[in-house]
């Protein structure tokens, strides 16, 4: 388990939710459920956050905001769709201004059902999200780890050596031919 999973920072955005899920997200942070004892901290800055809790469906007006917050967050990141509206549009699925669940805008890792979502379910979802976060981190780390870098370096050197050995035979020949032509071309008008 890496440090991030021991203290995930969350960011919360209210899509077009009715506040019901939002006050339950806030209730998780207050003394009754107190997720801060697990190191979960609420932040307002997308650059600091690892987990994106989003409540409510997306509509024409806020889809840009949701995408923007998601793109500002740094990798690895996890999206948790909190409540029935965020999962599928819920009771408002056939409203004229509702596009649908959050997955219409950004990729979602964990879906939490409930109207309104219960704090216990929310804590469970964040824990499930940490599993996804850990997998993403491992994939990222593999791509940037020392062994991977060494392997990549060795492969690059091999490729360079191969590339260097082949043109060395061809290039002088080309240049000779070219210079020959050039010399001939220069000489011809002179003669």
């Amino acid at each position: 388990m890496s440090g991030t999973s021991k203290s995930p920072w969350i960011i919360h955005y209210d899509g077009s939710s009715c506040n019901g899920c939002d006050i339950e997200v806030l209730a998780c942070l207050t003394p009754m459920y107190d997720v801060e004892r697990f190191g979960v901290i609420n932040t307002g800055n997308p650059k600091h956050a690892d987990v994106f809790l989003i409540t409510g469906a997306v509509n024409e007006r806020n889809i840009g905001v949701v995408k923007q917050i998601y793109s500002q967050m740094l990798e690895p990141k996890v999206v948790v769709a909190c409540g029935a509206c965020a999962c599928s549009g819920g009771i408002f699925h056939d409203c004229y201004n509702v596009i649908g669940g959050v997955d219409k805008a950004i990729p979602v890792d964990v879906y939490v059902p409930g109207c309104a979502v219960r704090p216990e379910a929310l804590i469970d979802a964040v824990v499930a999200g940490l599993g996804a976060l850990e997998e993403k981190r491992a994939a990222l780390e593999l791509a940037s780890s020392y062994e991977a870098k060494e392997l990549a370096k060795a492969a690059e050197q091999e490729r360079l050596a191969e590339a260097a050995s082949q043109p060395l035979l061809e290039e002088p020949a080309k240049t000779e031919e070219q210079t020959d032509i050039d010399i001939n071309a220069d000489e011809e008008p002179g003669e």
């Binding site: 899509g15 409510g56 469906a57 007006r61 056939d94 004229y96 201004n97």
Partner: peptide
């Protein structure tokens, strides 16, 4: 307008 759903029409 960020939370407008249009529920009066429901």
């Amino acid at each position: 307008g960020f939370i407008h759903r249009g529920l009066e029409r429901l």
